[in-house]
C-alpha cells in the first residue's frame, strides 16, 4: 500500500503488521522470539506480549480503534515508536481528536499513522492534528495528492502542527 511520510511518498515501510496474523498467534500470545524488525500489533497483542515485544530485536507499534480510551496508553507512549489510528469511513472523525491529544496534549514524539479511509481530502486536517504518516489505498494514490498539504496555507485556529491561533501567530 502506498505510504506517505512527512508529506512525501515513502518507498519503504519498515513495519510488519501482526494484526490478525494467525501464524503469529492472532490475538493470542505471539511467538515473538522468532520475529525481528519493527512490529505493528493490536492493543490486545501488546497487552499480552509486552515483555517479549519489548525485548525483541526491533521497534514496536500499536494500532488502536477510534473509540479507544487513550488514558490506558499514556504510560506506554515512550515504549512505542508508532501508533496507528483507524479512520473506518470517510465521515468518521474521532481519530482526529485522538491524534491531536496524543501529539499535542501527551507530547508523543513517534510516528502517528492514519490507516483505513485515508484519501487526499482529509490529509491536511490529519496533518494538522499531528498525524505524520498515511497509508493510502492503491487505487486512491497519486503523486498529485501531496498537494493536499499546501491547498490552504492560512490557519485561523491552533492545532498540533502549530498551537497558536491566528491572534498569536
Amino acid at each position: 500500500m502506498p505510504l506517505i511520510i512527512n508529506q512525501q511518498r515513502a518507498e519503504l515501510d519498515s513495519w510488519t503488521s501482526l494484526l490478525g496474523d494467525e501464524s503469529a498467534g492472532g490475538e493470542e500470545v505471539l511467538s515473538v522470539d522468532q520475529l525481528s524488525g519493527d512490529l505493528l500489533v493490536s492493543w490486545e497483542q501488546w497487552q499480552k506480549n509486552r515483555p517479549a515485544l519489548l525485548s525483541h530485536d526491533g521497534r514496536v507499534g500499536v494500532k488502536i480503534d477510534n473509540d479507544f480510551e487513550l488514558g490506558d496508553l499514556i504510560e506506554d507512549l515512550d515504549k512505542l515508536s508508532l501508533i496507528a489510528l483507524e479512520f473506518p469511513v470517510f465521515s468518521d472523525g474521532r481519530a482526529f481528536s485522538q491524534a491531536r491529544l496524543l501529539r499535542q496534549r501527551y507530547g508523543y514524539q513517534g510516528e502517528i499513522r492514519a490507516v483505513g479511509d485515508v484519501t487526499w481530502d482529509r490529509l491536511r486536517f490529519m496533518h494538522r492534528c499531528g498525524i505524520n504518516a498515511y497509508e493510502i489505498a492503491e487505487d486512491r494514490y497519486s503523486d498529485e495528492m501531496l498537494e493536499a498539504f499546501q491547498e490552504i496555507t492560512v490557519q485561523l485556529q491552533g492545532a498540533a502542527d502549530d498551537p497558536r491561533p491566528i491572534y498569536r501567530q
Partner: peptide, 13 residues
C-alpha cells in the same frame, strides 16, 4: 467563527 473555520479536529463530527 474564526476558531471554527476549517477546524482540523471538528469537521467530521
Amino acid at each position: 467563527r474564526q476558531w471554527a473555520t476549517l477546524h482540523p479536529e471538528f469537521t467530521y463530527l
